[in-house]
Amino acid sequence: MFYKKQKSWDMSASGLKASDITPKNLFDNRRQFIARAGKSAAGLGLGLGLGSIAGGQALFANPGAAQAAIALKGKPNMAHTLKSLGEPELTSYDAATNYNNFYEFGTGKSDPVENAVDFEPTPWTVVVDGAVANPGTYDYSDLIRPHQLEERVYRFRCVEAWSMVVPWLGVSLGDVIARLEPLSNARYVAFQTLHDPERMPGQNGFGLDWPYVEGLRMDEAMNPLSLLTTGMYGETLPNQNGAPIRLVVPWKYGYKSIKSIVRISFVEDQPPTTWNITNPREYGFYSNVNPLRSHPRWSQARERRVGDGLFTAKRKTLMFNGYEKDVAALYTGMDLKKYH
């Protein structure tokens, strides 16, 4: 797949002069450029699926470059392409990496890209605990590596009534869970984001209870759509998008797709989730995209596709974000307004 984002760093290709961009952009671009140069110099050791993530980074002489994205290859999942979604185009890489909600790095949309520049995502371990046969502390790449990295294009719908179309790289969460072998009393899976105010300056502020926690019912977690994600747009996850490992649950509002995961716990009871703790009336445990349930803050009937023109009307939001046929069966007989 060819991504337009190439333009953002390859200045010669886009015909940009150095003076056309701000010094900060220049700086960031150069970082990415160094990372890419490092990658091609490193040559053979790379490009072998996820194994290249950890190995690749160790090869960089410049530690600053390690945080820049590294090319990743995933096998396109033909059930989740632009075409199968019926979407005309991907959201631009620039938009998807500069417009983020990631309160660990600040509440403004451009705070994450600015404040996560120096975040060093590796080495990174994930604690697996609770009702599971294979608990332990895993290097995040060990969770992923045994599986085929897939590229899946998903709609991404934020509760704030905007949406994107993003090519993620990841593996089925269900496959990873199966390998970890949950015990029979594991009815939910709980996830936790890194809590380290020194590395995540937004955690010095108040407003949310840190660490950020999320959870899924076991059958939701096992649904083939749930993606344990390590990359997007053909490269490793940028810091502001939840490096190095995050969840993507496309039929739920974006905040369910927890970022920078450090703990996966198998539990018997419904786990607490951050936005639900913060405001239970507005944010439920399930948080399925539902145009019929009006949210006290935003009508959920419509959404703005990021990248649409200034005067383009919002488009209609689809039930379960358009994934109804894949997930509706999970909720048969449930009152989705009550269990929102």
Binding site: S92, D94, A95, N98, Y99, K109, S110, W162, R304, V306, G307, L310
Partner: peptide, 12 residues
């Protein structure tokens, strides 16, 4: 980003 200095979501 996203076309102009107004950012990726100029409406917002």
């Amino acid at each position: 980003v996203g076309g102009s200095g107004l950012g990726a979501n100029p409406q917002e």
